[in-house]
C-alpha cells in the first residue's frame, strides 16, 4: 500500500525480537483497508501503510507520545483522536481531515 517503496516507514523485517503474532484484521483508512497487528495504535498502522502525512501535511506523527496533537484523525465518527494514543481495533474506520474527517 506504500505509495513509494523506496521511501517511508516500514515494519521491521526479520525482526530480531521474533514476534509470533499474525495480523488481527484490518482498519479502513480513508476508504482503503490497512492491515493491523495486535496492540498497535492507529498511528503505527498508518505509518506501516506508508501514510506519513495527511491533511495537506498538517497531519503527521511527530512526538509519538501524545504531546504535540499533530496526529489527529477521526475514528468511527469521533473527531480529534490522537492516532498515536489510540489502540486500533479491527474494523475501525479512520478518516483524515483531507477525506472528510476532522482534526
Amino acid at each position: 500500500m506504500s505509495d513509494d517503496d523506496e521511501r517511508g516507514p516500514y515494519r521491521v523485517v526479520d525482526d530480531p525480537v521474533e514476534p509470533t503474532a499474525e495480523p488481527i484484521g484490518e482498519i479502513v483508512l480513508d476508504g482503503t483497508a490497512v492491515s493491523l497487528r495486535p496492540g498497535e495504535t492507529v498511528a503505527a498502522a498508518m505509518l506501516a501503510a506508508g501514510r506519513v502525512g495527511w491533511d495537506d501535511g498538517r497531519g503527521a506523527v511527530f512526538c509519538g507520545i501524545g504531546v504535540c496533537y499533530g496526529c489527529l484523525v477521526t475514528v468511527n465518527d469521533t473527531p480529534s483522536i490522537r492516532a498515536c494514543r489510540y489502540v486500533a481495533r479491527p474494523g475501525d474506520v479512520v478518516t483524515t481531515a483531507g477525506h472528510g474527517g476532522t482534526r
Binding site: E6, R7, G8, P9, Y10, R11, V12, D15, V17, P19, R37, E40, T41, A43, A44, L47, A48, V52, G53, W54, G57, G59, A60, V61, F62, C63, G64, I65, C84
Partner: peptide, 22 residues
Amino acid sequence: PGVYTPGAARALLQGARIVPGR
C-alpha cells in the same frame, strides 16, 4: 511529515516495531 522526535522513533520502534524511514 517525516520529521520525528527521538521519543517518537523510540515509541514506534520499541512499542510497534516500526522504523520511520529507509
